[in-house]
Structures are given as structure tokens and as C-alpha cells.
Write a protein that binds this DNA or RNA. Structure first.
Lengths: 227, 227
DNA sequence: TTAGTGAATAATCAATAAATTATTCACTAA
DNA sequence: TTAGTGAATAATTTATTGATTATTCACTAA
């Protein structure tokens, strides 16, 4: 076997860990398992990661980045209005995180382990989520479609008001369609709070956007779509 | 010792359990402990409760009713506007549940045990919470202060959007002042979504209402205020 | 009949020992 | 020097066993 650059070895470890963690879970995966998968000794793992938990942190970090990417991909789609953009992002968030917990239950376990050991991790993930909202509100403000005097405050509000609809299974055991209906009501309220009324008529209700499934089904299995 | 009516005995058990649960926690309290506190045999407890968990359920049910009562007491205060009423209720909810988890940490444990054994319990508690919102929205609709075409839908939306601010410590480790500021932003958004704009000017921001502490501090210690 | 007992049993918990696993480090090969 | 080893040790986890506890029920007293 030829010499292997540090980067590739590190990736091999992460790959092995991803498979083991998602299949057997973090606690049941041993460093010896990973070493064997990578055809190396346990000691060598520690040249690439300070400890077992750090492998989990790296995987969770990438998972969180992927989630934001999935949602940001929605941002790149051309839409009629900023309102529609906002709605699509919020629904994508609900659906992506819902399917994630449903299809990859070990992901939740991993996230909980990481957060309980590294509280900072959660804070950073939340911050990343919020940046997406901030971007949309900024766009709506610039175009005049939204009437927001204070974008950072509105971002916090939007993020807080939609908390229940990210990783919803943590809070409730409602079904996805139930949550979608509920989120539509929430968005109606929020959008009315953001947009000026036209001729005294209230802004129309939010409708549940179509579900473009392939995007996050692919992502949740870790398959990258072609560039 | 004289004969004792069923009701009084049952209350004695509940009282003993409340004390033990809040002091030592549910798992460390034994039926024998409760029996001793009530000067009876363990077997007799089972004439009043089907099992240990049912004592916890009864206590949690009353706790939940008290929480709603605390919030409903806010409803009875005369205020200038329905908007103010809504804001006071939502903030009272945040503050009451926050202090509850902070001062009586065993309450959380108890609630989690009860919910994990009786999922229906949570559903009913949520329904009760929502009824309070429904009443307010109905009032606002009747008076014309709120522009809600669909009160049940708006109720669901309001409840969902404020989820993070009930028992907030379950979701975040932000401080109460931080949560209050955040909730004010959320309420600004929601209230703007509910109220018609006047002369094109947006509805002014929500301000954090004063904290009338005695109400829920009393309640959380189980002291009833004089009628 | 009603209110209650307390020993018997089944279920759960806690403590300890045994085994496994994470992590370190002195070492080797290229 | 860089990439890697694997045995030694420290930390955790798992099994096992001996309490402890929940629950039942045949029974008693008023």
C-alpha cells in the first residue's frame, strides 16, 4: 500500500466513523473498529483526532453544514417574491430535519452527545441557521417587499417563532402533514407581520409549498449531486 | 384516630407525595415512604391509586392546571387593549414556566416521567394552554382590534410560534432577560400580523411588560393567595 | 360492607466484579 | 522527520448478583 497523505487518511477515518455511527451508533463503535476499517492501529487514529468525541464533532459539524447548504440551495432558486423564498426555506427546513430524524435516527443521538459535550456547537449551529433568515429579510427589506425597521431583531423573531419546526420530533409527535399545516398558519401570521397591507386587504394566507423531495433525500444519505 | 372519608385520605397521600417528590424526587420516593407519612400500610395506597405513577400523574395534572390558572389570572386584570392582554399572557407564561423549572427542578423530572408514560398527558396540557390563546384572539376579533379571519388557525399559529418560550430551559440555556428580549421581537412580528395598520404606519413594537413577580412565585411554592 | 393490614411475589435497582474500551507512549520502518 | 505500531494503563461499560421496591391478595377489625 502506497504512502497516503494526511488528508486522505483523515477522510478515511471520518468515512468509517460515519458508517459505523449511523449503523451501530456512537457508543457501540470502538476506536479499534475504526482502526480496523481503516487498516491501521488504534494509536494512529490519535494522530488525526484528539479523542473519539472529536470524530463525532467533525461529523456533526459537516452534517450541520449540509443542512444549511440544503436550505441555501433553496435560496438560489429563482422565485417570484421574497415572501415565497422565505416560505420555501422554512418549509425546506421542517422537511429536511424531519426526514433526517426519521430516516437516520442515530443522527439525533450523535447530535445530543456532541452538544452535551460541546455546548458551543449548538450555539454555532443556531447562528448559521439564523444567517439564512437574515439574508432573506435583508433582501425583502432592500426590495421594499418587507417592512422591517430592524433586520437583526426580525431575524431573531423569525428564528424563535419557527423553533418548533426544526427537528420537530424533539418537541412533538405530530406527523409531517400536521406540522406543515401548522407551519402554514404560523407563516401567515409572520408574513402579515412583515408585509405592508395593500388597500386595507390583509396579506393572503401562506399555502404549503410543494415538496421537492429529491433534494434532501439525497442529502440525508450523503450522496452529493453532480455540480 | 377517627374514621376518615375517602377524599381526605386520598388528599393526604397526594400531599405526602408532593412533599417527597419535590424534595427527593419521584424515583427515590417509595410507596412505603408515603404509607408511613400517612400512617397506613403500603397496600392501602392501592385502594386510592392504581399505581405509583398515577400519583405522579395526579400531581402533574394539578400542577398544569395551576399553571393555566396563573396565566388566566392575568386574563382577569383590566387592560387597555386585547393586544396588551395577549402580551401579558405570553410573558407570564415565559416567566412562570422559567421560574418553575429554576426553583423546582424536580417538577421537570416529574413532568418528563409522566409524559414518557402517558403521552396523552402532554396533548391535554397543550390543549389547555391553547384555549387561553383562543379566548384572547376571540376577544380581539369580536372587538375588531385583531384582523383574524380564522380564529382556530390563528390560535394554532400563536401557540406554535411561542413554543420556545414555554419551559424554555428545555430548548436553550439563554437567560430569562435574553428570552424576554427575544419574545418581545416575536410578539412584535405576531401582533403586526394580527392587527390592521393604521394610516400605513406599522403597529409599534412590543415592549417587555413589567414583571408582577408575586403571582407565580407564590404559586410555584404552592401558596394560594387570599381570595 | 368499608377501611385497612402485612406477608408474598414480581419487578426494578444498586453495588460490585469482570471485561471492554479509550488513550498514551516508547518504539519501528521508510 | 513522518507515518504508523501495539502493548500498557486508565476510564468506561457490562454482567451478575444481592438488595430494595412495587404490587397483589388473602385476611382482619369496625
Amino acid at each position: 500500500m502506497g504512502v497516503m497523505s494526511e488528508e486522505t487518511t483523515r477522510e478515511k477515518i471520518i468515512d468509517a466513523a460515519r458508517q459505523r455511527f449511523s449503523h451501530y451508533g456512537y457508543p457501540k463503535t470502538t476506536i479499534a473498529d475504526l482502526a480496523e476499517d481503516c487498516a491501521m492501529s488504534p494509536g494512529n487514529i490519535y494522530r488525526f483526532f484528539k479523542g473519539k468525541i472529536d470524530i463525532a464533532v467533525e461529523i456533526a459539524r459537516r452534517e450541520a453544514l449540509t443542512a444549511v447548504e440544503v436550505v441555501e440551495r433553496v435560496l438560489d432558486c429563482p422565485v417570484r417574491s421574497t415572501r415565497q423564498r422565505l416560505e420555501e426555506v422554512v418549509f425546506a427546513d421542517l422537511r429536511y430535519t424531519f426526514h433526517l430524524l426519521e430516516n437516520q435516527p442515530k443522527t439525533l443521538e450523535l447530535a445530543q452527545i456532541v452538544v452535551s459535550d460541546r455546548p458551543q456547537f449548538q450555539i454555532e449551529s443556531l447562528r448559521r441557521e439564523r444567517r439564512v433568515f437574515q439574508r432573506i429579510l435583508h433582501e425583502g427589506h432592500a426590495s421594499g417587499e418587507f417592512m422591517v425597521s430592524n433586520v437583526p431583531a426580525a431575524t431573531i423573531a423569525l428564528h424563535g417563532a419557527t423553533t418548533k419546526y426544526r427537528y420537530a420530533q424533539l418537541f412533538t409527535n405530530q406527523t409531517l402533514p400536521e406540522l406543515e399545516r401548522e407551519l402554514a398558519h404560523v407563516m401567515t401570521l409572520i408574513v402579515r407581520g412583515l408585509m405592508p397591507t395593500v388597500e386595507g386587504r390583509p396579506v393572503p394566507e401562506t399555502e404549503i409549498p410543494a415538496d421537492d423531495k429529491h433534494a434532501y433525500i439525497d442529502a440525508s444519505v450523503g450522496v452529493k449531486s453532480a455540480p
